[in-house]
Computed example of a mutant assay.
Amino acid sequence: MVPAYMEYNTISSSIKSLLQDSKTALLSPREVREALNKRFTINQVNVISANDLGITKDGGVLKVTTDYEVREPMFYNVSIVMTFQDEFSKDVRQ
């Protein structure tokens, strides 16, 4: 279970660092997706891609949402399912 949480932490920190960048306010949702794809590639994120994220820019607020699950087999027909859902937002009107 630890690798799944570590990968989620990498995803979360990649999104947060992008949203903290002052240039993010000028980017379209497509450009945000491309920037996140590059960060995911550099950080070797394999569980999801930037195409799996919800990225919207509405009313001056940029939102990035994650919603995915990881299944890890334990033994025989028993698996652990971990669900990761989160929403990150930045007011780009500033």
Rank of each mutant, 00 (worst) to 15 (best):
P3L: 04
M6K: 09
M6G: 07
M6C: 02
E7V: 03
Y8G: 01
Y8I: 07
Y8R: 08
T10C: 02
I11H: 05
I11V: 11
I11F: 05
S12F: 05
S13G: 04
S14D: 11
I15Y: 06
I15D: 01
I15A: 01
K16Y: 15
K16P: 08
S17I: 06
L19N: 04
Q20H: 15
D21C: 15
S22T: 08
K23M: 09
K23R: 09
L26Q: 12
L26T: 13
L26C: 04
S28F: 08
S28E: 10
P29G: 04
P29Y: 05
R30E: 15
E31N: 05
V32A: 04
R33D: 07
E34Y: 03
A35I: 06
A35L: 12
K38S: 08
R39Q: 09
F40D: 07
F40I: 06
F40M: 06
T41P: 03
T41C: 05
I42P: 09
N43D: 14
Q44D: 11
S49M: 14
A50R: 03
N51A: 15
L53I: 13
L53P: 00
L53E: 02
G54L: 13
I55D: 00
D58K: 14
G59E: 02
G60F: 00
V61F: 08
L62P: 00
K63I: 04
Y68P: 01
E69V: 08
E72N: 15
E72V: 15
E72H: 14
P73G: 11
P73E: 10
M74K: 14
F75M: 05
Y76E: 09
Y76N: 11
N77S: 06
N77K: 04
V81Y: 01
V81W: 02
T83N: 13
T83L: 10
F84R: 01
F84Q: 02
D86K: 08
E87V: 12
E87S: 12
E87W: 08
F88Y: 09
S89A: 10
K90A: 11
K90R: 15
D91Y: 10
V92I: 14
R93Q: 12
Q94P: 09
Q94C: 08
